[in-house]
């Protein structure tokens, strides 16, 4: 019996080794360990084994059964592993991915506007807005612009038949905001479209985008204006960006400045690029606001403020090296997809 067991074990392990798939392996199991299997048959023969040999034969029988069971189990795992490996055979992972719905993009103007807004919000500016169809009062009179100022001309400004106009700058939102303000301080930024009667060419659009800023309180100084805008442009263009303020003239601020930042163009020396206008709110603006409000919230003797405005189209062009402003309104996908996130 012992020798029978030895040869059975050899036979079973060979059969396991030879099994090519799960069903062959199952057949082997049935053959040896099934109800009618050879190992089962031998264990039924245990009752005929003499008592003095029972212990030895029993141990041997157990050994054979364990060896066969383990053999089947490990072969099963090996077969599964081979099958798993086969499942990924021949997959070329270097092929392009499935496009899904494809990649879209935010317009570069939206991106730059959002960057500007996020930066200024960190300094506690709230957003404000106003109508694009404006009264002459909000766009010019209240902003201390003389009655015969050239900007009011029909050659330069779009008018509606009813006498209103398309705002020539977002500065009219300063007026709208101060008219409606309940208290000081007023600290707002206003992104928006503005209109000028310009022929469209590589550097001009008749409708363009600006960002206006206004901070009015009782102790606002030129130092606040400088600190705020230095911070802003360094956040936008990099911490080491040089920013300079050149005295200039605007009817609604005094003193007034134009702001240049020093930027490097590809392969060229860094140069000063004009980027924004700013200044301290002219007291005449406060006087006009008070008159319209019928109170003295904006007392020109104690209230001070700064205002600034910048062209977002120009900012986008400088930032991305865009050479023709018309790209911003053509919406050619070959242009837009360059700005995908």
């Amino acid at each position: 019996m012992l020798s029978q067991l030895d040869s059975l074990k050899t036979e079973a392990l060979a059969a396991i080794e030879a099994a090519q798939d799960e069903s062959a392996l199952e057949a082997v199991r049935v053959n040896f360990l099934g109800k009618k299997g050879s190992v089962t048959a031998l264990s039924q023969g245990m009752k005929d084994v003499p008592v003095d040999q029972k212990k030895e034969v029993g141990a041997k029988l157990n050994d054979v059964r364990t060896a066969v069971t383990d053999g089947i189990e490990s072969k099963k795992l090996a077969l599964q592993a081979a099958k798993d490996a086969k499942a990924v055979e021949g997959i070329d992972v270097t092929l392009p991915g499935r496009p899904g719905a494809g990649v879209g993009a935010l317009h570069p103007l939206t991106q730059i506007r959002d960057l500007a807004i996020r930066t200024l919000r960190r300094m506690g500016f709230a957003l404000a807005e106003g109508p694009e169809i404006e009264t002459e009062w909000h766009c010019f009179d209240a902003l201390n612009t003389p009655a015969d100022h050239p900007a009011r001309n029909e050659k330069d400004t779009f008018y509606l038949p009813d006498g209103r106009l398309l705002r020539t700058h977002t500065s009219s939102v300063q007026i709208r905001t101060m008219e409606a303000a309940k208290s000081l301080p007023v600290r707002i930024i206003a992104p928006g479209a503005a209109y000028r009667r310009d022929e469209i060419d590589a550097t001009h659009l008749s409708v363009f985008n600006q960002l206006e800023g206004l901070y009015v309180a009782n102790d606002v100084s030129l130092g606040d204006l400088k600190g705020t805008l230095e911070y802003f442009f360094r956040e936008i263009f990099g911490a080491n960006t040089a920013v300079r303020f050149r005295p200039h003239f605007f009817p609604f601020t005094e003193p007034s400045f134009e702001i240049d930042v020093k930027l490097e163009a590809k392969g060229k020396d860094a140069r000063w690029i004009e980027i924004a206008g700013c200044g301290m709110v002219d007291p005449a603006v406060f006087t006009a606001i008070n008159k319209a409000r019928g109170d003295t919230l904006f007392d020109p003797d104690t209230t001070t403020g700064f205002a600034f405005g910048l062209g977002l189209d120009r900012l986008a062009m400088i930032m991305h090296g865009i050479t023709d402003i018309r790209h911003l309104i053509d919406n050619d996908v070959r242009f837009l997809q360059q700005f995908a996130a």
């Binding site: 960190r122 600290r187 309180a217 100084s221 030129l222 606040d224 600190g227 400045f257």
Partner: peptide
Amino acid sequence: LIEEVARVIGLDRVPSRQTAVASPVEAAD
């Protein structure tokens, strides 16, 4: 006249100041 002084001294002479103000969220925000 203040403008004249600002123009002559230039902004280099003016110390930068940064203020942050806690602004309530507006409808536009």
